[in-house]
């Protein structure tokens, strides 16, 4: 039996569909979740392969200790041998706790399905995306935390049953005073297309052309580290070895030199487009498509070309 934890507090996101699809490829899937999602929304997870969704409406979806108890109780209830998370910020708090509670080996940052021969191994990102490792798990129960954008959601079934579940979640020790989530932005780690820019843009006042292009593409925006450090852009946009690691389908980088620490966070991207005035910029070596040119001219031109393309294809 496969137990999949999904985050449903802000609706059913793409990462939820990914982990259910992933779980379905390993066996019969039960989903466990906390918080206040509607039954109708949760039932849709059946379309991606869940046989059943169990929800504990008393559990707080942002308390790691409660979620750990919830998932542990659910795992015992269904006799789960494999527990799957999406490797997001919730999983980073919950999965390690669960690993200790169940004495179950944790594979974090999985990017593929496990090999389940005589050994149970799974491929993960290591060295900040500069290499892959194959991790073997020795324990009876295994926990896999899957990197977002590692699998395409697949519609395979119909709506499933949704049951209320008592996860015996206990009390809360961490008091939440305030949660600030800007509305309407695509979370960077989930975005399929990311438009990113660096110091080559000269100043924060020039980010309009980056945002315009992102808007046309339905993309998230990102930046290099110095840009976040000098305060041109918010810290949560910083990608790279010491920022977020992302693996979108398309990464467009303008005015970024492509230092090894930057590449570490983005070289899992499927396709990379680099725009830089310097033909010697190291980023061109990691790029699929390169434009040697001035971002101030190329970005607006690319935006116009995309708009034209979208108009012709709608």
């Amino acid at each position: 039996m496969i137990l999949v934890y999904v985050n449903s507090d802000h609706g059913i996101g793409k990462s939820a569909m990914e982990v259910v699809t992933y779980g379905k490829k390993l066996g019969d899937v039960t989903v466990v979740t906390a918080g206040g999602a509607s039954d109708a929304d949760l039932a849709k997870l059946g379309q991606y392969g869940a046989s059943k969704v169990m929800i504990d409406r008393n559990a707080k979806a942002d308390d790691a200790q409660q979620l750990t108890r919830l998932v542990a109780t659910a795992a015992a209830a269904v006799g789960a041998k494999i527990i799957v998370f999406s490797n997001d910020l919730v999983a980073k708090a919950v999965a390690p706790r669960l690993s200790v509670k169940l004495k179950a080996g944790l594979i974090s940052g999985a990017i593929a399905l496990p090999e389940m021969g005589s050994d149970f191994t799974c491929k993960v990102n290591v060295f900040s995306g500069k290499a892959f490792g194959n991790v073997k798990v020795n324990s009876d129960i295994k926990i896999i935390s899957l990197l977002p954008n590692s699998i395409q959601p697949e519609l395979t079934g119909a709506d499933c049953a949704v049951e209320n579940f008592d996860g015996a979640v206990g009390d809360i020790k961490v008091k939440v005073l305030e949660t600030k989530i800007p509305e309407g932005e695509i979370p960077l780690t989930e975005a399929e297309v990311v438009v990113s820019a660096g110091r080559g843009l000269k100043g924060p006042e020039n980010w309009g052309m980056v945002e315009d292009l992102a808007k046309t593409l339905g993309a998230a925006t990102a930046c290099s580290r110095p840009v976040a450090d000098i305060g041109w852009r918010p810290h949560h946009e910083h990608v790279g070895q010491t920022g977020f690691a992302i693996r979108p389908n398309l990464y467009i980088a303008a005015g970024i030199s492509g230092a090894i620490q930057h590449l570490a966070g983005v070289n899992g991207s499927k396709v990379i487009v680099v725009i830089n005035t310097d033909p010697e910029a190291p980023f061109f070596k990691a790029a699929d498509y390169g434009v040697i040119g001035d971002a101030f001219e190329v970005l607006p031109r690319l935006n116009e070309a995309l708009k034209k393309f979208k108009a012709a294809n709608n």
Binding site: S99, K103, A104, G105, L106, I107, D119, T121, V126, K130, A131, F132, G133, N134, V135, K136, V137, N138, S139, N267, K285, A286, A287, D288
Partner: peptide, 15 residues
């Protein structure tokens, strides 16, 4: 006990 171990590594294909 050890619950996990790295058995091997790969480096990404050069672009």
């Amino acid at each position: 006990d050890m619950l996990t171990s790295f058995v091997s590594y790969d480096t990404p294909d050069a672009k």
